[in-house]
């Protein structure tokens, strides 16, 4: 039962994030929403992979039944990539704010079009 509750919660987290990207006007909120959906997928992957064992995948003496290390290693990569994308997106947002004076995506679009 808890399995389904966890999955359902992650599903909702993903939907909330997607809704933020889709409907929020503020670009900072959009970037955060992007992080939300990435986290939802990352946590889902690691959580599901951890159900097969009890211990962290560090094979010291006497450790058996470790969790699946593959999702953890892969998601490590995905997390770093997502951090990098976020950093650059925030820099872009800062740049947009400095050039157009707004965080609202519609305002920014309008002003960028006026300028060019």
């Amino acid at each position: 039962m808890t399995v389904y509750v966890e999955r359902m919660l992650l599903f909702l987290l993903f939907l909330v994030g997607f809704w933020g990207i889709l409907a929020k006007k503020n670009i900072i909120k959009k970037i955060f929403s992007l992080n939300l959906i990435t986290s939802a997928v990352v946590v889902l992957f690691i959580l599901e992979g951890s159900r097969v064992g009890d211990h962290a995948p560090i094979l010291s003496d006497g450790i058996e039944r470790v969790v699946d290390p593959v999702p953890q290693a892969l998601m490590l990569t995905a997390i770093v990539i997502s951090v990098c994308i976020t950093a650059f997106a925030l820099a872009l947002a800062f740049h947009l704010y400095k050039t157009t004076g707004s965080f609202d995506i519609d305002d920014i679009r309008k002003r960028a079009q006026d300028e060019s």
Binding site: I27, K30, I37, V41, S82, I85, A89, L92, I108, S116
Partner: peptide, 27 residues
């Protein structure tokens, strides 16, 4: 250029979101 960072931002948002879907598909 004015607008270039907006273009870059739009591209970033849509393709980064799409890549999250890719990751989910991979899962």
């Amino acid at each position: 250029k004015p607008g270039a960072s907006l273009a870059s931002f739009s591209y970033l948002m849509v393709s980064a979101t799409a890549m999250v879907f890719f990751l989910l598909g991979f899962y």
